[in-house]
Amino acid sequence: MPTSHRDCPFCNIVRRDDLDAREVYRDEHVIAFFPTEPAVLGHTMVAPREHIPDIWSLHEDIATHLARATVRVASAVREATELKGLNIIQSNGEVATQTIFHLHVHLVPRWDGDAMGPIWPNETDYTEQAKDLMQERVRQACRRIDTR
């Protein structure tokens, strides 16, 4: 897999080709920066420096580095913003609102009455049978994955 894509805006930030990027953290494996249009002030994205399009393409060793950096940067955002809460959002695929196909984690500080609003529906109407069926399907898929 290529480590960088010429047309990827996040790869441009990794290569330091985007002079407008507001980088806040960088190490050998990851980079953290503010999005161009933050949802709230302090909204930070953490991404692997290697071009990885989505979570299904992520190798466990890079996942470990990404998780550690996410915790580290979340602590920094907490200290800098005096937040009241934090959403950690990671989207995959257009239907899940992924617009840049370079894996990244959003750290979104939250306060009462902020511009984000709720991120979950107030309620759903799934039947117990539908939930049981999905539970079994995911359980079986987990078992298959564990044996690979």
Rank of each mutant, 00 (worst) to 15 (best):
P2N: 12
P2V: 15
R6V: 02
R6Y: 04
D7M: 10
D7T: 07
C8W: 12
F10C: 09
C11S: 04
N12Q: 15
I13R: 03
R15F: 12
R15W: 08
D18V: 00
D20Q: 12
A21I: 07
R22Y: 00
E23Y: 01
V24C: 13
V24S: 05
Y25H: 15
Y25K: 10
R26G: 09
D27S: 09
H29I: 06
H29Q: 15
V30Y: 12
I31T: 13
A32V: 01
A32Q: 10
F33E: 07
F34G: 03
F34M: 13
T36V: 14
T36L: 15
A39K: 13
A39Q: 13
V40A: 06
V40I: 02
H43Q: 13
H43A: 14
A47F: 06
P48W: 01
P48D: 07
R49E: 01
H51E: 11
H51V: 04
I52W: 00
I55M: 04
I55E: 08
W56I: 02
L58M: 11
E60A: 10
I62P: 06
L66R: 06
T70C: 04
T70S: 15
V71D: 13
V71E: 15
S75Y: 13
V77D: 00
V77Q: 03
V77W: 05
V77T: 08
R78I: 10
R78Q: 14
E79S: 07
A80W: 15
A80I: 11
E82N: 09
E82F: 03
L83T: 06
K84P: 00
G85S: 06
G85A: 12
L86A: 11
L86C: 13
N87T: 01
I89N: 08
I89A: 12
I89W: 10
Q90F: 09
Q90N: 04
Q90D: 14
S91K: 14
N92K: 00
Q98I: 05
Q98G: 11
T99E: 11
I100N: 03
F101Q: 08
L103Y: 06
H106K: 12
P109V: 00
P109K: 05
R110F: 09
R110M: 10
W111S: 07
D112Y: 02
D112F: 08
D112S: 12
G113I: 03
D114G: 05
G117T: 06
P118L: 08
P118A: 10
W120G: 03
W120C: 00
P121D: 08
N122W: 03
T124E: 00
T124H: 09
D125W: 00
Y126C: 10
T127C: 07
E128Q: 14
A130F: 02
M134G: 09
M134E: 01
R137N: 07
R137T: 13
V138A: 11
V138T: 06
R139V: 02
A141S: 12
A141L: 00
A141G: 00
A141V: 03
C142E: 03
C142G: 04
I145Y: 08
T147Y: 14
T147G: 15
